[in-house]
Amino acid sequence: MLKFFCFIAPLLLIPSLLTSATLSNKHLLVDVEEETARIFISTIDGKEDVEGDERINLLFFDKPPSSYTVLYVHRDAITFGGERGIYIKRPVAIGDKIETIWEDKTVNVKQVVEFVKRKNTRTEDGVLITYTIKNISKYSRTVGLRILFDTSLGEKGIYHFELPTGEQIRYETEYLGDDQPRAWISKDTKRNPQHILRGVIRGELVTTPDKIVFANYKSLFENLFSYRIRRKRKFDYPPYSRNDSAIAMYFIPYYLYPGETREYSTILGLSGEEEYGEDVVEIIQIEEEPGVIEEIIEKPEEIKLKENIDLDLLNEELERIKRIRELIAEENRLMEEMNRILEIENNILKEEELNRLKEA
């Protein structure tokens, strides 16, 4: 692999951290680079039940980080955080989140990076990455996304990726639609197979992509749009890149009306089948003191109408309210019809895109 590899110590003042927003807990460190808003993740103490997984890079470290996101806006590919737009808010740690807001002339994009807990054990060993895209133009636009993660653990081992079913991925591979796995795994099969990065494809907090592709990093880097795999090609791109793997998650563009938003989320975490999820809210039943409810029912507060009401004025106001309700009902009917038409257009667009991906 033709890349320089190093680990970022969380308390070390090296140049990347001087220009980055950082979050850390006892398991993980997350770094969002200030100039590009690109994300890097490493372990601190890692999993409590795993030996020797301290200070392990889970994504490849470079300056800027090599994992990044591409926006698909009206048949154009725009790199999030790139020179074609401006920062409304550069990456900044606010409480337990790192927020970034960037926009170009058509879309406003908010990236939020935060730790997320397991559903039952409440272990906080996952990173939730969310993009909220808003159409700020005057016209309807098709908007989609590609998230590219430059992995590194599998490049030390026998195979680069693994699925929860045990299937090993040694060559370029893609999965579409319902054929996509629940998750993908990158691990060091040669030195320590317990060193694991796990990406969630299906789950409570994530947006399932339309397609995922495992391929050489440089090949994906040079093809911003849909990449055509070669099924027997390893993760090489001779003579420029060897044994260098990555995963790309594609979200097919959908129409957004002016002012409309759409959200995409994904999770990277450590090993373990337990799902990530929201806190479970415990419902506590409060016992009422005897007689309190009965007293409220038996002694309702009296409601009195004001005297000397102008009945003509009242009838006129009621008629005006009736007309407003009729206008609202008509507007709702028109909106339902527009939504129906938009849904048909989105289904056609998605079907055409899926057919194009299958033919590619």
Rank of each mutant, 00 (worst) to 15 (best):
L314R: 09
T130V: 01
S20I: 01
I14C: 15
G203T: 11
Y159V: 08
I201R: 03
E204S: 09
V116T: 15
L153T: 08
I293S: 12
K138L: 11
R84S: 15
R141S: 11
R182N: 14
Y250D: 05
R323G: 01
G203E: 06
L148W: 03
L224Q: 14
V112D: 04
I303F: 12
S271T: 08
G157T: 12
G46S: 09
R231T: 15
E317W: 01
G166C: 01
G144A: 04
C6Y: 15
V206R: 07
D244Q: 05
R38I: 00
R191E: 11
L13D: 15
F251Y: 12
V107S: 07
D236A: 03
P209K: 00
E295F: 06
S265K: 07
V292A: 04
W102F: 05
Y175G: 04
L176K: 05
V200K: 05
T106I: 11
F61S: 05
E260M: 11
Q111W: 00
Y175E: 05
I129K: 04
E124C: 06
F149C: 01
E278V: 10
T43D: 00
E302F: 10
Q168L: 13
L13W: 10
Y264C: 00
T142R: 15
Y254E: 14
E155A: 13
S20T: 00
N339L: 15
L18N: 06
K117S: 15
S241M: 01
E359L: 06
N355M: 05
K117G: 02
R233W: 11
L163A: 06
L28T: 00
D49N: 14
L23H: 05
E331K: 14
Y87D: 06
L2T: 10
N315G: 02
D244T: 07
E287C: 05
L163P: 06
S186M: 08
Y237A: 00
A9G: 13
I101L: 01
I129H: 03
P181T: 02
